[in-house]
Design a protein around this nucleic acid. Structure first.
Lengths: 218, 218
DNA sequence: TATATACGATACGCTGGAGTTCCGGATATC
DNA sequence: GATATCCGGAACTCCAGCGTATCGTATATA
């Protein structure tokens, strides 16, 4: 493993991530390569896991030289931390949530083929990241913010709207309930190694979430 | 990583785990060392994760020589697979479940300080194991059987009893609900990196499980 | 066209850990 | 007590992968 370098805080990585840590920067610099390299790193991470992943794989996938990568990130560990931290920027704005008029309609509307396979890749990345979380705890925070939080937050918003319109009781524990879906998905992918499909997600909605808020159970 | 050796199936490891794979076994052999080595392997795995774990650490912890370990297991990977597969034998018999007369009483009775810290170690082991799951899928099965299944099975039994005595409806999705607790615990330990405490487990019982089966929510 | 810089590609040194081998000592059988 | 075998300990080999250094090339400035 070897995580010796000082690791920047997650928030500090926000605006522009890769900075030439070798300091004496010349004049020009191809900033368009950064996202491509980070995306390649996430691909390799999702496919092979952290310890199976090598910098050469990332370089080859990004059609970049290994030196180019090390010119921007001081170590393999920081490259991955950066890559995970940057994922959250690709999340769709929370304003564009479905609004069907019923909680069940909203929750089911979240189940789209696109979001299923996208979510699958995200949790594969999560699996790769878990290996080094014990040595870089802030990576857990980054992964949580990038992968779990968006889903949980969407659930909170949908349930809060259901409360506001009087569809469900106001004393539901929506903070805990919002985590059920991500946690069950993570468990199914990481441990059970079963794929996520529409049937599974529907069983969560109709077998857990809706009953728990007092809907669809007489 | 390097998982090249052929990996035995989980079930084949059941009765006596470590067999001298170097075949030509002499006459005597200290079989009492096997469990100690496996236990040491689990300890190191829980503390440092898979890639941080070295065979020397395991040998030192078990006060054994590295050669002794390699005399019994052909590789680091198989040692870990064996160690995880053997965990399930330490599970208490399912017959000794609490029986308080109510579902809530039974579920709360499962929350004991002992089972909390024991569970904590188990999920730390799970975290260490996740790193190599992608390369040894049967390890996922072993970990699932040893760590998740016992908890899920206990929940199924308690809920089935509640159905039988007419406390809750028979059309509850108890198979899915039984997985909520282990999944949420795994998520909290592996990703959130927060400790498990009584308050958290109570919020699962009172905020998710009981409402979902139609109890304690008017 | 001349200069400067970053790029991709490649070769290299170095390190840590897997797995092997060897040895002295302990233990049990006869 | 002699023999045989396993044990703990340690030194050893081997290799994959990190990180560095070098080189030819592409591109942009002047």
């Amino acid at each position: 493993m070897n995580v010796t370098a000082t690791i920047a805080t997650v928030d500090a990585l926000d605006p522009i991530v890769a900075t030439d840590h070798h300091a004496k920067l010349g004049r020009k610099r191809d900033f368009t390569r950064d996202p491509e390299i980070l995306e390649a790193a996430l691909d390799v991470l999702a496919e092979t896991g952290y310890d199976g992943m090598t910098i050469d794989m990332v370089a080859k996938r990004a059609k970049a030289g290994k030196a180019t990568i090390y010119r921007r990130w001081p170590s393999k560990a920081e490259l991955i931390i950066d890559a995970v931290a940057c994922m959250r920027k690709n999340n769709l704005p929370a304003a564009e949530l479905p609004d069907t008029g019923t909680l069940r309609g909203d929750l089911v509307a979240l189940i789209k083929p696109h979001s299923i396979e996208e979510g699958d890749r995200k949790f594969q990345i999560m699996a790769g990241v878990l290996a080094m979380i014990s040595q870089a705890p802030e990576l857990a925070e980054a992964a949580n913010v990038a992968i779990i939080q968006p889903r949980a937050h969407a659930n909170v918003l949908l349930m809060q709207r259901a409360i506001d319109r009087g569809e469900i009781s106001a004393d539901c524990d929506i903070q805990t309930l919002a985590l059920v879906t991500p946690a069950m998905i993570a468990h199914r992918i990481l441990i059970l190694r079963k794929p996520i499909n529409r049937e599974f997600l529907l069983s969560l909605v109709d077998g857990v979430l809706l009953p728990a808020v007092g809907l669809a159970r007489p």
